[in-house]
Amino acid sequence: MPEKDELKAFLSEKTGYYEARWFIDDDPVQIPHLFSKKEDIEIAGFLTATMAWGKRTMILNACRQLMERMDMAPHDFVCGASPREMETLNGFVYRTFQNVDLIYFLRALKEIYKDFGGLQDVFFKGYCNGGVIESLRYFRQVFLSYGAPQRTGKHVANVTKKASAKRLNMFLRWMVRRSSPVDFGLWTNINPADLLIPLDLHVARVARSLGILSRKQNDLKAVLELTQHLIDMRPEDPVSFDYALFGLGVYEKF
């Protein structure tokens, strides 16, 4: 493992390179970047993060198609689509995310914006009671409470069963991190210092190669172990290093 200062300098340099406007063009984050309204960004970001597994070209194609079916106005569609308008979603499928899952997701989002005022307030209520892990647990509880089909639960990470929650942590990174050309910084009531690393296969592989992740499984314990190493290097914004670790794995095959 490199010396801490040497590793921090290396990862900081890589973060500076990858956390740039050009990164958006290849990444699923480009979908919420299509919008300027807060609620549109939130909903587009959440749905995109939910489908963010597999080849990025496939993710982008599916998510853009979904936004187009929602008339490029996801918040208005979620809150006010008529039964006839909902029919435009018929046949939408992305891998194991089936039409039945999508319909439930949109119904749950509608209820959350009605009952809580939006996604931010649900995540924040959990966050106030126990940080980001409790935020993820509470969000899942609320989100699946509107009569979710049993199969749909697999599309929302369960941290009580030690899931890494990669996609939800990525969504939180998008919403919370500030002063970034890629992330949005819309949710200012959650501290970026408390975020957890979105642990995908690339990030985990690079982290193990650098000696900052020893756990073999890509689970919640691995997330906490890696995040702690990143906190030691940049306590105010540890998940900024997600760019370096991901970029090294995807673009540089580190």
Rank of each mutant, 00 (worst) to 15 (best):
S214G: 15
A193L: 07
L7C: 07
E68F: 08
E252W: 01
L196P: 03
M70P: 03
Y113I: 02
F246M: 05
Y243K: 07
K154W: 06
R107C: 05
D232A: 14
H229K: 15
L119K: 00
L196K: 14
L60H: 02
D27H: 02
A52Q: 03
F10Y: 15
G153T: 09
E42K: 00
N129Q: 15
R137S: 14
A193F: 08
N90E: 12
S145C: 09
L196D: 06
D183M: 09
D5T: 13
N189C: 02
F97N: 01
F35P: 08
F35I: 04
A157E: 15
L248R: 01
F77S: 06
M86F: 03
F10R: 11
F105D: 03
S82Y: 08
K161N: 09
G118P: 07
R205M: 04
M72L: 14
H229W: 13
I212D: 02
L196W: 10
S164Q: 07
V176E: 04
D200F: 09
E68M: 09
M1L: 05
R173S: 09
R173A: 07
T88M: 11
P235V: 01
F77W: 03
D194Q: 11
L102R: 02
K216Q: 08
A9P: 02
G185F: 10
I197Q: 13
E85L: 13
G91D: 01
E111Q: 14
N218K: 15
W53T: 05
V182M: 02
F241P: 11
H202F: 11
D200N: 11
I24G: 00
I133R: 14
T96A: 05
L195G: 08
M70S: 03
V142F: 03
R140H: 04
L224E: 15
A81S: 15
T188V: 12
S179R: 14
Q98T: 10
F77P: 05
K154A: 10
Y251T: 00
G117I: 08
